[in-house]
């Protein structure tokens, strides 16, 4: 059955939880198109290290939310100027070319001259306005991507520059691409008319569809998982990092090894005059969850 769901919420944790539930519970013969928009957030790939991808200090300051998705690929910044699309189908019926055909019809109707590149991006005028990723699990296949219509590019540039530089990690790093908003190409393009065109193109390619909603028990649990620090910061390959923090009356350099998001080894160097200050710092940090915004706060509390 062909199904269309347009999320009425902008909460990114909710939207990705909903996507996950649609994916998990898709019937054998389902072709689902799910359209959704998130309030400002950074979404990293399944195997990425969020610290390596973005400026977490800037995110805390501006209230941009951190997320980890289930599919692979790189980090993206999103706000309400972006539209996300997701195709879900059984592996037997999933056909990237058909999904791309829907996308080509949408961009064609928007009068955008689009080019699909080898890196799974869609370009116009040599710049990227859409990137996509996929996931296969238990016979189900998901193909999803972003479409930049009027994204805040200043914020995007700021947030996707990592603030912690001295980090050695084995995660998957993003490759930076030059980007463009569809509105820069054609002022008349809005999120609303793009959503309408998605419905139209979906029908042209797959035939009539049914508009659905989803309310399942598993939504709450997936939501909790997605919004937990252990998932966001912990579900990435182990890494070591070194960072300098200025406390009220001391400069500390922290050398950390982080496994499953937990600080597994720590060495602290400091210019503090208090003799056992470094040891105290080490004690408080060891075996605790590594969250960049909390570290400074917890060290301050020692003073």
């Amino acid at each position: 059955m062909n199904k269309l769901l347009i999320s009425n919420k902008n909460d990114p944790y909710y939207n990705i939880a909903l996507e996950r539930c649609l994916f998990k519970n898709a019937a054998d013969d389902d072709i689902i198109l799910y359209l959704w928009q998130n309030s400002p957030c950074v979404v990293v790939g399944r195997n990425q290290n969020i610290l390596l991808e973005c400026d977490t200090d800037y995110m805390t300051k501006t209230g941009i939310l951190p997320l980890r998705r289930f599919s692979g690929g790189g980090a993206v910044f999103q706000d309400l100027g972006n539209l996300n699309y997701t195709f879900i189908a059984n592996e037997k019926y999933a056909d990237d070319e058909k999904f791309k055909l829907v996308l080509k019809k949408v961009t064609g109707d928007l009068n955008v001259n689009s080019v699909f590149t080898g890196r799974n991006d869609i370009h116009c005028q040599g710049k990227k306005f859409s990137g996509y990723a996929y996931l296969s699990e238990d016979q189900n296949y998901m193909y999803h991507g972003t479409m930049m219509i009027d994204v805040d590019l200043d914020m995007l540039t700021q947030v996707l520059s990592p603030s912690i530089l001295k980090i050695q990690a084995k995660g998957i790093e993003s490759v930076k691409s030059r980007v463009i908003n569809l509105q820069q190409i054609n002022k008349a393009i809005t999120v609303e008319n793009t959503i309408k065109l998605f419905g139209k193109a979906f029908e042209q390619v797959y035939g009539p569809y049914q508009v659905i909603d989803y309310q399942g028990q598993d939504l709450d649990d997936t939501y909790s998982l997605l919004s937990s620090s252990r998932w966001i910061y912990g579900q990435c390959p182990a890494y070591t990092l070194s960072l300098e923090k200025k406390l009220k009356n001391a400069l500390v350099t922290l050398n950390l090894e982080v496994t499953d998001g937990v600080i597994s080894r720590v060495k602290v160097y400091t210019d503090s005059l208090e003799p056992d200050f470094a040891a105290k710092c080490e004690k408080i940090l060891l075996n605790s969850l590594f969250e960049p915004k909390n570290i400074l706060f917890r060290l301050e509390s020692l003073i």
Binding site: G45, N47, F70, G72, G73, N120, G131, Y134, L135
Partner: peptide
Amino acid sequence: AQVETGKGNKTIK
């Protein structure tokens, strides 16, 4: 484990 393939993620169960 998770394995990245291109821009996809394959979950090994």
